[in-house]
Write a protein that binds this DNA or RNA. Structure first.
Lengths: 331, 331
DNA sequence: GACAGCCGTGAGAGCGCTCCCATAGAGTTC
DNA sequence: GAACTCTATGGGAGCGCTCTCACGGCTGTC
């Protein structure tokens, strides 16, 4: 950016002062139509773009927000659930004055991520997936306003978050299976360090308990396709259930492969319900019956809450979104 | 970042001047051991982090680089190939003084991305996937140093890029199929607006021509699983080939499903060779024989080239990496 | 012993912008 | 017509840092 056009040159060309140019750039109303016009023309002619650093230094705002990716990059990128959320966030942020950035925090020995945030590089952050152990999250939250995707395990009560009702979603899914006549229902969960996984397991247990059924087999599938396959194998090793509630579509895909390899028909021998209604759900055979999470909308809401915070408003701390069972072939 | 600790306070606490603190922070050697120590202690005690905006304003460097995501977000996130590249980039950048950021350029009506780059928000950029039509890419390249993943279609000769030898990789793959005795060989390509897809198609044709074989069927699979399935269906509609060279593993997964549904055995009836050797290759059945792309290493190299550029060095404009055929079950 | 050279240090200017305050001029009010 | 308000504008300070330059104290050289 050496030798770039400055506000001073724009002012000279437009025949006004720096202050007036600044007013135009920042959308102040107290500018005469003539001055407004002159400045706009000068900006176009010179192809002027305000220097971000100078702006941020003078105003102590950056007009940038970041999605922090604490996950392992591979998991984040491989999961269509995150893609939808990011798309939702992006859609809302793109319509605002802010710029959106994704920041990778993993593989970050020197706390560079924290330094980045604390150095005033962004005005606010959205943190989507976070394990309970991530205490670096608290340090980010100490520096800038943060909105979480999913209820954060720690700092409950004071944090802003947008979550889906995982417990209820899981309960609904399992109740559907019970309603279909299944009695021996296993589950493949996500890692129990993640709130969503914990809640879904609870919903599963609640539904069984409410129906007076014995708890079924529980295996952790780590929210990956491979983990789902491994979990399914470990369940089959101890007996074949009527049905399996799988806490993500990606894991369900892995499980489906294992069931097929074992010669079990879905849904006739074993019914399968997934979670997410991501693109995966319709790309497998049989297509998944699954709990739809409104991921795109969740992204929208997270972005809206963050923008409200940055605007000095007081948005609700908790936003809970409903899930919906999508019936397809697997159950 | 209101009320944050400034360099001035650190200087006061350490009993030195602003300049000396700056020297310590920036790793200058011309500081006495005593001063160094005093400053370090003051920094720790006050928990000082330099203000990025001020730093950048004074030095006209930001110590930040970005990976620009021009693709549709879903495709970018869904493809493990990108995940590996980003991991490679991240690994190298993380070891430097720079901070890495991902910026989404799609869905960006107001050219905010361009403004972001031109405003001096980053020192350099890496652009991974780009269609020939993306002329916004040129505008980014006009503002900061850019390294491309894959040979850029336009601005050839002047651009810095790191590519794999796609033509040769495809030729090797098809030659392998020919060597296995296959004579009727179809191909599923990527979009012909992308250099990698063009090169792989050329390699396929070269190999057939060199062996004196007639060109087989060609169908575009759009580098997605669904597109691969559709392309496979369109090929089968016109006859069943001996073998298919598929220009990405993701598309191969889609094709495999279609072949299976058609009652064709892989590799006995139809041999399949994929491209990428991503995680997908081993998660399908039969496991894919595929051209391994050194994606992680490619990311490393892109980052290294960019860092060299930013350091004022003269790295090679073109870096071409070799692929390697990984033999598994599908061919 | 005088001078050059070097090293560690501090002072000051300035990066490009925002924001507060002063001011000029026009319009209101009594 | 004097005092007042209001609006559009310009000037100046300052955001927190880097970087050049000058300076004082040291060592080394003849």
């Amino acid at each position: 950016m050496v030798g770039a056009v400055t506000i001073e040159e724009v002012a000279r060309v437009a025949g006004v002062s720096r202050s007036t140019v600044s007013r135009v750039v920042n959308g102040s109303t107290a500018v005469s139509p003539e001055a407004l016009d002159a400045v706009r023309q000068a900006i176009d002619a010179l192809n002027y773009v305000p220097n971000r650093a100078a702006r941020s230094l003078a105003s102590s705002r950056t007009l940038a927000v970041a999605v922090i990716i604490p996950e392992d990059v591979h998991r984040f990128f491989g999961d269509p659930f995150f893609a939808s959320i990011v798309e939702g966030i992006n859609a809302t942020i793109a319509a605002s004055d802010y710029v959106l950035t994704l920041a990778i925090a993993s593989n970050d020995p020197a706390d560079k991520m924290i330094g980045y945030v604390r150095s005033g590089a962004i005005d606010g952050a959205i943190i989507v997936s976070h394990h309970t152990g991530d205490h670096f999250v608290e340090r980010i939250a100490a520096a800038v306003p943060v909105v979480f995707g999913g209820r954060p395990a720690a700092s409950a009560g004071t944090a802003y978050f947008v979550d889906v009702d995982n417990t209820r979603g899981a309960r609904d899914a399992v109740e559907y299976l019970i309603g279909q006549g299944h009695r021996s229902i296993a589950t493949i969960t996500g890692p129990q360090t993640m709130g969503a996984a914990v809640d879904r397991l609870r919903g599963y247990r609640d539904a069984l308990a409410a129906a007076g059924l014995r708890p079924g087999q529980v295996a952790d599938g780590d929210f990956t396709a491979e983990g789902g396959a491994a979990a399914m194998r470990s369940i089959l090793a101890q007996g074949t259930p009527d049905a399996v509630f799988v806490a993500s579509d990606l894991m369900a895909r892995g499980a489906l492969g294992v069931l097929e390899a074992a010669g079990l028909r879905v849904p006739d021998d074993v019914a399968v319900v997934g979670y997410d209604d991501s693109a995966v759900a319709t790309s497998v055979s049989p297509m998944l019956t699954t709990m739809r999470q409104p991921s795109f909308e969740q992204g929208n809401r997270m972005a809206s809450v963050l923008l409200a915070l940055l605007a000095g408003e007081e948005p609700p701390r908790a936003t809970i979104m409903r899930t919906e069972l999508i019936l397809r072939e697997s159950a």
